[in-house]
């Protein structure tokens, strides 16, 4: 159910912390909430209790792009983390690196995770911190981030880029390849006769 993404411009907030885990992005106790209810209120729920947290800032609280630090979204595979970002209006997160599962989960929820050099992310965060309210554009067509301090090229896996640019439904695409999957299964079963079904 991929949401289309071509280009997105919004106020960006800096967040300096490294290794931000998905338990911080959404505490486990909220994961049982039905999605229809909306996950925006869960975003960084417990971290928000810190008065200096960016979402409590009069300007950064309105940001829809986050510029973060190394290994953002590490830890738990909970897709509640991108649900919460998505429902709060975020469509892109920029960081030097991401937790692998979080990275994939973002793509499936119409959020573009942008990897930029550590030094670039640091400069961006510094600039944004000193110029609250500055906007950043993430363009998936040209794979460029435009900020007042410059333009930065990035690349996302071509497969996901296609999906997002065209709003392709991934499950639909795979199901259209069912004949290949069935052919694979036939050969595979023949080469692994000892495998037994679980039912």
């Amino acid at each position: 159910m991929a949401e289309k993404f071509t280009s997105f411009t919004a106020v960006a907030a800096p967040y300096d912390l490294v290794n931000v885990d998905t338990d911080q992005i959404i505490p486990a106790r909220f994961l049982k909430a039905p999605r229809e209810q909306g996950y925006a209120g869960f975003l960084f729920h417990d971290v928000r209790e810190r008065p200096d947290f960016f979402l409590n800032h009069p300007v950064f609280g309105k940001a829809k792009i986050l510029v973060a630090n190394t290994n953002f979204g590490c830890g738990s595979s909970r897709e509640g983390a991108p649900y919460a970002f998505h429902d709060a209006g975020f469509r892109s997160i920029i960081a030097p690196s991401f937790g692998d599962i979080f990275f994939n989960n973002c793509m499936k929820n119409g959020i573009v995770p942008v990897r930029l050099e550590e030094s670039v992310c640091a400069s961006l965060r510094k600039f944004l911190g000193e110029n609250a309210g500055a906007e950043v554009t993430v363009d998936l067509t040209s794979q460029k981030v435009s900020a007042p301090i410059g333009e930065f090229a990035f690349s996302v896996p071509a497969f996901f880029r296609e999906m997002l640019l065209e709003g392709v439904d991934e499950i639909g695409l795979t199901l259209s390849m069912l004949p290949s999957i069935e052919a694979f299964e036939k050969d595979y079963a023949a080469s692994t006769p000892w495998l037994t079904p679980l039912s």
């Binding site: 909970r78 989960n105 499936k108 929820n109 795979t174």
Partner: peptide, 15 residues
């Protein structure tokens, strides 16, 4: 490990 969307994808396609 994987997220819920990937989980759904595996349930639907086994891939």
């Amino acid at each position: 490990g994987m997220g819920q969307s990937e989980n759904e994808h595996v349930l639907a396609t086994q891939t």
